[in-house]
Design a protein around this nucleic acid. Sequence first.
DNA 1: TGAAAACAAGAGCAGTGCTCACTGTTGTTA
DNA 2: TAACAACAGTGAGCACTGCTCTTGTTTTCA
Lengths: 216, 216
Amino acid sequence: MANQTPRQRARTETEAEIIRIGNRMLDSGGIDGISLRAIARELGIVSSAVYRYVRSRDELLTILISDAFTSVADAVDRDLVPQRSVFTIGATMLEWSRQYPNRWALIYGTPIPNYQAPREATVVPGTRIMVTLAGLVAELPASPSPSPVPAEALEPLRVGLEELGVSHDDPVIMRTVAVWVAVIGLINALRFGQFGPGFDSVEDELMQGLVTTLTE
Amino acid sequence: MANQTPRQRARTETEAEIIRIGNRMLDSGGIDGISLRAIARELGIVSSAVYRYVRSRDELLTILISDAFTSVADAVDRDLVPQRSVFTIGATMLEWSRQYPNRWALIYGTPIPNYQAPREATVVPGTRIMVTLAGLVAELPASPSPSPVPAEALEPLRVGLEELGVSHDDPVIMRTVAVWVAVIGLINALRFGQFGPGFDSVEDELMQGLVTTLTE
DNA sequence: TGAAAACAAGAGCAGTGCTCACTGTTGTTA
DNA sequence: TAACAACAGTGAGCACTGCTCTTGTTTTCA
């Protein structure tokens, strides 16, 4: 590992640089701001040469997506250490979305047209938070009424969770789904401006209100 | 109105045709599938001529967005006649999203980069459903505990609703927000494939479970 | 040391939104 | 009815995109 050939070191460095520039372009110009030609220009290289490092624009997007999923999930894990609560998850995701709005849109917004993220690149990093959330929901005081949803409706999720090595009963799964979609939905609404302006200073309070409403 | 000049009739027809083709391209190829050049080709007209009818691609998008908002809201109003319930709203939106996934993404997904929808084009059609929902939530049996969110956090929404001629107290607004973001969040998750495959046959049951969880 | 692999360059294809100068046609008005 | 202005359509062109292919150069490895 340590003694690489100069060429290998250069390649590794260039690959990392491409990802850095890609992330920067994503942050400043959204998904459409990511241009392989512009990256090539910045690298001081002709446009066709960048295809030595990245098979296509879509491949770069896949890397950035995987990157972003890992980044939020890491943030959640970090913040969860002092304070293990559902609200912490929501607040951390909200904060992350504020810091990287375009990365947020990349992973939780509209999928890119004519692009299918390879499952192996997204499943594991993309499900980490939900698995954590399910664990926290399971610790909550039991809901007054039993799950009002037919067992087969939760089948795919139950199976999916078990493939990841976790197992919960249906009321917990249903509640997890409710919290999950509400949290993502709220952050999307805020980030995408669907509530209009004027929410900048009350985002966290809204998240607090939402989580309380959903978990009490 | 009836006796227009031939030129005016032709113009009206062409404008309608552009919107029809635009919607069709949106439905089949997503937002990136909307190309003014392709529309011009289909009209049998040179690409620059289409700018006689549409100021820019963004203007066409604005029309399509407004169109889509009106379409969902109409569907909700229609379905609400026999069965006035929160679930009906969710189920209708879900069904509409299934029928027009790309129009759904256009209005509830990631905003288009470098594009700001003019507020006057989206506010009225875009808020109809939420206003209706608030009305239904207000009729629900009161929540056991009072609103756990500071009054100022709901200020912008309270004001927004009042501008539209509706007025609710904070617990109702908070609950409306919770239901709203959860419903949109669930549909987004389903449409955008964030839960993975295998949910096609259980979408409505999931929506039912979600609404029940949130309104009981 | 010589062959193979990797890197880079440059031209080119097909597509995009949009502008501009230019004709021909239609509608209005003096 | 003749003149003029508004309108519709043309075609060339700009600046940009992703991506491919051929050619030449450099590095690595057997």
